[in-house]
Simulated scan of single mutants.
Amino acid sequence: MPEPHLRAADVDRAAVADRLGAAMTTGRLTVAEYDERLARAYDARTYGELAALTTDLPPTTAPVSLTKQSAPPSSASACAGPGGAQLADAWRNWLVTAVIVLGVWTLTSVSAGQVLYPWPVWVIGPWGVVLLSQTLTRRGRDQLPG
């Protein structure tokens, strides 16, 4: 950090807040400690005040996860390259939502003793159409030469 007496900017406070959040998620800070330090970070005026909030934390490095393995290469070009992970996440979120709303609909239909109006199609249908469109557009764009 620059000299401790210099005034800090919002981006500096946000960087310290991110570092504190990472420390809390790794178990280095309790929720109470995190809340207290976060409040002090956003009240800080100088670099010195910000630096004091992280002096007892180890330097940040790229975390190495032993439990999360990188995904194997996929043959689907729709999820390859930049933005492909976001598209895969969007499909995963759609699937989770679809399972939930279909489960709720099924349970309410069973408990009512009749098949109710299939409202989940209005939740997952348009969303699925948009995702499919994005996937096909991306696949076509990835297959273009050049």
Rank of each mutant, 00 (worst) to 15 (best):
A52W: 03
E33F: 04
Y42T: 06
R92C: 08
T97N: 08
H5L: 04
W91I: 01
W94N: 03
R141G: 11
Y47W: 10
P145I: 02
W91R: 02
T97V: 13
A85Y: 01
R141Q: 12
V11K: 14
G146E: 00
V130C: 07
G48Q: 09
P120Q: 01
P145E: 08
L107W: 06
A85Q: 10
L38R: 06
A85V: 02
L144Q: 14
P72I: 13
S77E: 13
C79V: 11
P59F: 13
S65G: 10
W119Y: 09
L38V: 06
A41G: 00
S65I: 08
R141I: 11
Y34H: 12
V123P: 03
A44F: 05
M24F: 04
P72N: 05
V130P: 02
W105I: 04
A9H: 10
P63E: 02
V16R: 04
G146W: 00
S74H: 08
D43W: 06
L132R: 02
L107Y: 09
P59M: 03
Q134I: 11
Y117C: 08
T55A: 15
V99L: 14
A98R: 07
R45Y: 07
L20H: 02
G48S: 03
P126R: 06
T108F: 11
D89M: 14
T61F: 05
R40L: 11
E33V: 00
T135W: 01
L107H: 01
L53K: 05
T106R: 14
S74K: 07
Y117H: 14
G146I: 01
V104K: 10
T46K: 00
L6Q: 09
S75F: 11
S70D: 08
A51C: 11
T26D: 08
D56L: 09
W91F: 14
R139N: 08
T25H: 07
A112I: 11
L20Q: 00
Q143F: 04
D18I: 14
P72A: 14
A85C: 02
T60M: 10
S65K: 07
S111D: 01
A71W: 02
M24L: 09
N93C: 11
P118A: 03
R138G: 06
V123G: 01
L20P: 00
H5I: 01
A14N: 02
D18H: 10
A76C: 07
Y47G: 04
D10I: 13
A15V: 07
P82H: 09
V115R: 10
G48E: 08
Q134V: 13
E3K: 13
D43Y: 02
P126L: 02
G103I: 12
A23W: 04
V121R: 09
A76S: 04
V129Q: 01
L50C: 04
P72E: 14
A41L: 02
S70L: 09
P4V: 01
R45A: 07
A71N: 14
D142A: 15
G146D: 03
C79R: 03
L66F: 12
A17H: 08
E3T: 06
S133A: 13
R45I: 12
Q69P: 15
W91Y: 14
Y117Q: 08
A90E: 06
A44V: 03
D35Y: 00
G48W: 12
T108N: 11
E3N: 13
G83R: 05
A23E: 00
W127N: 04
V104Y: 14
T106V: 06
R45D: 08
G140Q: 15
P145G: 05
L29I: 05
A78S: 12
P63F: 11
A76F: 11
A8V: 09
S70C: 04
W91S: 04
A90V: 04
T61Q: 13
